[in-house]
């Protein structure tokens, strides 16, 4: 599993990678390990807009359902369709199996409280 360079992570375990095409959002390997076998993912409709910290979807393991929160606010431009039928992919590689792509409203401001991946790792371990 390759850790993408430059990712930032929220306190609620969502990672975000900002590049020229927008923001790609996923869940950290640590969070997925805590969840265990993922059996269901519910993702938002393309075109919906969420602000930073808002619930954008649900992830369910065998045991429980958890909500996922926007690390930055913006409009949903793409969802990872392959996760609808194969949610277990998330347990295999948490970075290549991203959840949503977002056109961020104000990435600079929204991302100011996010952690760099190494600092996040130190915090959860």
């Amino acid at each position: 599993m390759n850790i993408p360079e430059g990712i930032l992570v929220s306190k609620t375990h969502e990672w975000v990678l900002e590049d020229d095409n927008g923001s790609t959002i996923g869940l950290t390997p640590w969070a997925l390990e805590q969840l265990g076998d993922v059996v269901f993912v519910e993702l938002p409709e393309i075109g919906t807009t969420f602000s930073k910290g808002e619930t954008f979807g649900t992830i369910e393991s065998v045991k429980a359902a958890s909500e996922m929160y926007m690390p930055v606010g913006g409009e949903i431009v793409e969802i990872n369709e392959s996760l609808i039928n194969s949610p277990e992919l998330l347990n295999e590689d948490a970075f290549s199996n991203w959840l949503i792509k977002v056109k961020a409203d104000n990435f600079q401001e929204d991302s100011s409280e996010l952690l760099e991946y190494n600092d996040y790792q130190d915090e959860v371990q």
Partner: peptide
């Protein structure tokens, strides 16, 4: 213990 390798495998 709630799980070791994973609930699906154990089940």
């Amino acid at each position: 213990p709630v799980q070791y390798e994973g609930i699906i495998k154990e089940h």
